[in-house]
Design a protein around this nucleic acid. Structure first.
Lengths: 228, 228
DNA sequence: CGAACGCTACGGTTCCAGCCGTAGCATCGC
DNA sequence: GCGATGCTACGGCTGGAACCGTAGCGTTCG
């Protein structure tokens, strides 16, 4: 009568710690090989192979074969959004102990969240833009103001897709570490892409973490009054 | 290092068919007793009790004791939003056979989605309001226009909470049956509440389904040009 | 007060899914 | 061509969880 079985099927796929680790790793936005995902999940390649096959069969992952490698990525924004929703519930659940590691510090500072920025960098950008009324972020939605559109346009951010509609909405995404919203959706993705193109921000190898370049540090201060 | 274990824990809670059925039943928005949920899930009361204890311990459900009954409800909008995200992924997954039952027809027509309307009614309202530019719905966000604010205000919809911010955003929610967005978020909740208050729409006993009253039928035609 | 009802605690059974070892197939480098 | 690498298929093991029956506690009603 209902779609509960299908919900359970998808949820149980995410419900295995190994698979959840893989999905979280892929939430970094990059396509990863089966071996990399095996390392991320802490299980053998054989086990990983089975997990990835299931996730792929359920359309949670996309697959790109390249030589002897198989690159997996999230099937789309809807999967990222689902994971985000689950993370949000996990965050509001019973409080937990979380041993802080060194790597955490880097992640806390700046990382990707599928296709946009998170961490101190992500919420910092959102805060500064909100202060200057370039952006309005509510609990359930957000919008770029005309001034914000102008501002981002001058930075060279490409709104071709987002501008198709008259308004440029954006989706607030609750930051896992900061517990406050940052800029998600098409706007967040376009802004992040521009920062990559301008070499303000670089990906850290084998991680979701990001490194802000010296040029990026200056530029963020200049354009966003954001001291990182 | 990461929060993957917590994600997996939450997801595995939803990943059991019995628990998923209970959560979907609670997505109707009402608080239900353990026995009602047992019936919804198709398992014994003993088993149900264990499931509900787990869901409650993980802060996915709220509990209200009333005499010898225990009323459970979703812990909050974040849980509903998570379920919505999972449903969305399940929808875009591999196509499935779905035997249509009689009850489905009623549900397809009009039902609640936590705190707002879904089904033909839900998407119909969204469509008509969009046509008249009372509402703008994008892929990831939406907003009530000034004309829409005026329109809904005259209907007596209470925006006290939503109006706190200058703008009234709303969250598009992908309809499970129609596969198109309907009005969610605070705006959807306020509109639904007003329709209940005006007795345009009634809940159907023991179901998420809704019945549109004769007065409601007339009013929807009059105010929204919506023929149901 | 006794019976019925709503719900939970505990014990035992069953079954499934994750895991790895071994083996096998494609691809790359020398 | 040969070995190394990346990945997958199969088989057997094992741990965990869902499930129900029985039993027990609190509440309601006659």
């Amino acid at each position: 009568m209902s779609n509960a079985p299908q919900i359970a099927e998808v949820a149980s796929l995410v419900g295995d710690p190994a698979r959840a680790s893989m999905l979280v790793a892929l939430l970094g936005g990059r396509a990863l090989t089966a071996t990399e995902l095996a390392h991320a999940a802490g299980v053998s390649p054989q086990t990983t192979s089975g997990h990835l096959a299931k996730l792929h069969a359920a359309n949670l992952l996309g697959l790109m074969k390249q030589g002897r490698h198989r690159y997996y990525r999230l099937a789309g924004p809807h999967v990222a959004q689902m994971l985000e929703g689950i993370m949000n519930v996990a965050l509001l659940g019973p409080p937990r102990f979380q041993p802080k590691t060194r790597l955490d510090e880097q992640m806390r500072h700046a990382r990707t969240c599928y296709d946009h920025f998170a961490g101190t960098l992500g919420v910092g950008l959102a805060d500064r833009m909100t202060e200057r009324e370039l952006l309005v972020l509510g609990d359930e939605a957000g919008e770029v103001t005309p001034a914000g559109l102008d501002f981002l346009g001058k930075l060279g951010v490409d709104f071709a897709a987002a501008r198709a509609r008259r308004r440029v909405f954006c989706r607030p995404c609750i930051d896992w570490t900061e517990r406050r919203p940052h800029i998600g959706g098409a706007v967040g993705a376009a802004l992040a892409q521009r920062c990559f193109d301008l070499k303000w921000v670089e990906r850290v190898r084998d991680s979701r973490a990001l490194r802000i370049t010296p040029a990026g540090r200056r530029a963020l201060m200049e354009h966003f009054a954001l001291a990182i």
